[in-house]
Write a protein that binds this DNA or RNA. Structure first.
Length: 492
RNA sequence: GGGUCGCUAGCUCAAUCGGCAGAGCAGGGGCCUCUUAAGCCCAAGGUUCAGGGUUCGAUUCCCUGGCGACCCA
């Protein structure tokens, strides 16, 4: 336990309570029957200096106190808001008023009393009885500025949640967004499923996995980097519409937009193609925006995003030509494409083909310019090993990404269901891995076997849930929408 | 991985050119029966992120390391 004087003081107080027979961590001591928000809603019209005769029980954390001698005002905070406590000697008596005064800011208490308003009109509970529910041993941050230090807010999110309303609002909004996402897919008849997090092969995306070890099997395993390959196995099994909303893990650096574990929603629909999936993504996200914000104009970091459908749809090649003035084609000579990209400031790796080169130009110059919701479609096959070959355009796949505020929000394709083509794509990835590409896709033989049993034409999508929450809560950093973002150890 | 910036009391922040480390809030003592960032009086509170260097003297300048923020790869 910390030897800090402020904590030592409170520990001493704790011992005094126990000596007087007051248990500072009681069980079953008090059950509230109303919340702060309910009180404010019920008595919104009460004038100053009113009595209601209504006796209520509220509970929460004492977050403020104003001591006026024989009269003490307290501020009680529960999960719904704040309510003033009015402790008066006439009601409580000398001894209990002194005990109330002796409470520390941060203590959890239960209070019983009449609902009144003060002379100044502040709705209050006139304390007739109170119970210490849990003693707090550490001082809270400053009442006006709260906890500002970003590092401390993330390391001690519990304190952040106590003192910063924005932290609470963001957590609540995130829960709401996740619930609306689930609702949108549930209403459309999707089955929510759970697939393995521990995997023998980490496939379904191009990323480096975390490695762990299964002791009983004496086998290294990976934390999943995507949900994709197992969900497609379920489509093979005849489950026609499935989705999973879960945590995926990628072994990459920390940044305002990347956390090693993040939340992905993936959904797969039999008989759909990527045009159907564009419509699905648009409809689902508009529903979520409507339900959560009630306004299709969303302010994000100073930009106004218009989510009213239809959203713009543009091919990657057109988008690149529009922004850079350079018309790339998949049929181009590789070195010619490399030269054009170099002219645009891209340093081209020898291993890159035309498709990868175009994608780099897109990511470097075009993506950030797409602020309004935009579907960019027809991605190069070279960077899309799990997407179906385009029905008419050689070298491309039926893949799209949804870009909002200059960032990828969703990624989707007509799924590759030709097992022979899938095997060829995996072989190409294997070759890339042999060339040193650590993010190349591994060969998953069981997934190939599943495809060999036959997967119907299928459309699939993935939505980055954290990024969606960032957009709808106007947060610039993923760390603000994660309750407990990844941090380096403190090194006490 | 590279660059820039930051780290001072429990919290929010000061500290002039390198010259006695301060304030507000919180906490302690006192006054006050209508405050609401309550007010007034008094006292207390520091490994200035860590280690090293320069200097008569370092929160301040230099080096190394830690953690974080932002930008870049």
């Amino acid at each position: 336990m910390s030897a800090h004087p402020l904590t030592a003081q409170r520990l001493a107080k704790l011992e005094r309570y126990r000596a007087r027979g007051i248990e500072p961590y009681p069980v079953g001591a008090f059950v509230p029957d109303v919340t702060a928000a309910e009180l404010h809603a019920d008595h919104a019209d009460l004038g100053p200096a009113s009595s209601t005769g209504r006796v209520v029980r509220v509970a929460g954390r004492l977050v403020g106190r104003r001591d006026i001698g024989k009269l003490v005002f307290g501020v009680l905070q529960d999960e719904t808001g704040r309510i003033q406590l009015f402790a008066q000697r006439q009601i409580l008596g000398e001894e209990d008023l002194e005990a109330f005064r002796d409470l520390d800011i941060g203590d959890w208490i239960g209070v019983e009393g009449e609902v009144i308003t003060t002379k100044r009109g502040e709705l209050s509970v006139a304390v007739s009885r109170f119970v210490l529910l849990a003693k707090s041993l550490r001082p809270l941050p400053e009442k006006w500025h709260g906890l500002r230090d970003v590092e401390e807010r993330h390391r001690r999110r519990y304190v952040d949640l106590i003192v910063n309303e924005r932290a609470r609002d963001t957590a609540v909004a995130r829960s709401r967004i996740v619930r609306e996402l689930r609702g949108a897919f549930d209403r459309r008849g999707f089955l929510e499923v759970e697939t393995p997090v521990l995997q023998i092969e980490a496939g379904g995306a191009l990323a480096r996995p975390f490695v762990t070890h299964h002791n009983a099997l004496d086998q290294d395993m990976y934390l999943r980097i995507a949900e994709e390959l197992h969900l497609k196995r379920l489509i093979v099994g005849g489950l026609g519409k499935v989705y999973e909303l879960g945590r995926v893990f990628r072994n990459e650096g920390l940044s305002p937009r990347h956390n090693p574990e993040f939340t992905m929603l993936e959904a797969y629909v039999a008989y759909a193609d990527y045009h159907d999936v564009m419509n699905l993504v648009e409809n689902v996200l508009v529903e979520v925006v409507d339900e959560v914000l009630g306004d299709r104009l969303v302010t994000y970091q100073g930009d106004t995003l218009d989510f009213a459908p239809p959203w713009r749809r543009v091919t990657m090649l057109d988008a690149v030509a529009e922004v850079t003035g350079v018309r790339f084609e998949l049929s181009m000579d590789r070195d010619a494409a490399a030269g054009l990209a170099e002219d645009l400031g891209i340093s081209v790796e020898p291993s890159w083909g035309v498709g990868k080169i175009i994608n780099e130009v897109f990511e470097e110059h075009v993506e950030r310019t797409l602020v309004q919701p935009t579907f960019v479609y027809d991605y190069p096959m070279e960077i899309s090993p799990l997407a179906r070959a385009h029905r008419s355009e050689p070298g491309l796949t039926e893949r799209f990404e949804l870009i909002v505020a200059g960032r990828e929000l969703a990624n989707a394709f007509s799924e590759l269901n030709d097992p022979l083509d899938q095997r060829r794509r995996f072989e190409e990835q294997k070759a890339a891995r042999a060339m040193g590409d650590e993010e190349a896709h591994p060969i998953d033989e069981d997934f190939l076997r599943a495809l060999e049993y036959g997967m119907p034409p299928t459309g699939g999508l993935g939505i980055g849930v954290d990024r969606l929450v960032m957009l709808l809560t106007d947060q610039a950093s993923i760390r603000e929408v994660l309750l407990f973002p990844a941090m380096r150890p403190e090194g006490t």
